[in-house]
Amino acid sequence: MLSIIQAAGWPIWPLLLCSVAALALIFERAVALRRVRVAPNGLVDEVLQVLRQGIPSQDVIGKLAANSTLGALLASGIRVVAQDPRCSETLLRDAFEAAGRSAAHQLERYLNALATIASAAPLLGLLGTVIGMIEIFGSQAPGGSGSNPAQLAHGISVALYNTAFGLMIAIPSLMCHRYFRGRVNDYLHDMEQGSERVLHHLVRLTSRAVV
């Protein structure tokens, strides 16, 4: 592998940096997008069960916010009701929407960078191949009297290492980006449904407080 890298020339070094960055982003997103950290199963039902006994204390709300991304979203609405038991539904919905936008931004973090690597890696590989081909043909003697077909074929194969390496980086990066994007969409759907359930329950609590 080291000999291939040395033979491919300097254009392969940006590709190596892209490969390291892609691996780091994939590992980070794989850890950050685990369900237990984003939207644990049964969390909404547990929150509704607690709310049936009344608005929890600030300590309980703080623990809910630290539980997960969904917990922080639900805690944002509960905190509004805890501060003002007679708040309007519009105010509650605005709080949930603001927290939802923040959660979506957090879940989508680094996905654009991973998509950029998936798009740029093949182009960087093609650039390295073109540069290698230019150097190969430029080194041949004019008129072909000093050319060596075997050496020329070997030089072209070496130049194609850049394109192959670029594709080796781009294909897994693109697949992981699609996978993470699908998980984020699923999480956002679950969080939207869960926040709607909690919102309706909080609206009933505020209506009782007004009466």
Rank of each mutant, 00 (worst) to 15 (best):
M1Y: 14
M1D: 07
S3C: 01
G9W: 07
G9Y: 09
W10K: 04
P11L: 12
I12D: 02
P14T: 03
P14F: 01
L15F: 13
L15Q: 01
L16Q: 02
V20A: 15
A22V: 00
L23C: 05
A24N: 07
L25E: 00
E28H: 08
E28P: 03
R29G: 04
A30M: 05
A32M: 07
A32T: 02
R34P: 03
R35A: 06
V36A: 15
V36Q: 15
R37D: 01
V38I: 09
A39W: 07
N41F: 13
N41M: 11
N41G: 10
G42Q: 13
G42S: 14
G42K: 14
L43K: 06
E46Y: 04
L48Y: 12
L48E: 14
I55M: 09
P56I: 02
L64F: 05
A65G: 03
S68H: 10
L74P: 06
L74Y: 04
L74A: 05
A75Q: 11
S76F: 12
I78H: 05
V81T: 08
D84G: 01
S88V: 08
S88I: 13
E89S: 15
D94T: 08
F96M: 07
E97C: 08
G100M: 01
R101E: 10
A103K: 02
A104S: 14
A104G: 07
R109Q: 12
Y110M: 11
Y110V: 03
L111H: 00
L111G: 00
N112H: 12
A113R: 08
L114Y: 13
L114A: 10
A115K: 12
S119F: 12
P122K: 14
L124N: 00
L126R: 04
L127T: 01
T129K: 13
I131L: 09
G132H: 01
G132P: 05
M133T: 05
M133P: 07
M133I: 14
I134T: 06
I134R: 07
E135M: 06
G138K: 03
Q140H: 02
A141W: 06
G143E: 05
G143L: 06
G143Q: 04
G143I: 03
G143Y: 08
G146I: 05
S147R: 10
P149D: 00
L152H: 05
S157Y: 14
V158D: 05
A159D: 01
A159L: 02
L160V: 04
Y161N: 02
N162T: 01
T163H: 15
T163E: 11
L167P: 04
M168R: 02
I171C: 05
I171E: 07
C176K: 08
H177S: 04
R178Q: 12
R181G: 15
G182P: 13
G182L: 14
V184L: 07
N185I: 12
N185C: 10
Y187W: 13
D190C: 13
Q193P: 06
G194D: 05
E196V: 15
R197V: 08
R197I: 03
V198M: 06
L199K: 14
H200C: 11
H200Y: 15
H201L: 11
L202Q: 09
V203A: 00
L205T: 08
R208L: 06
V210A: 11
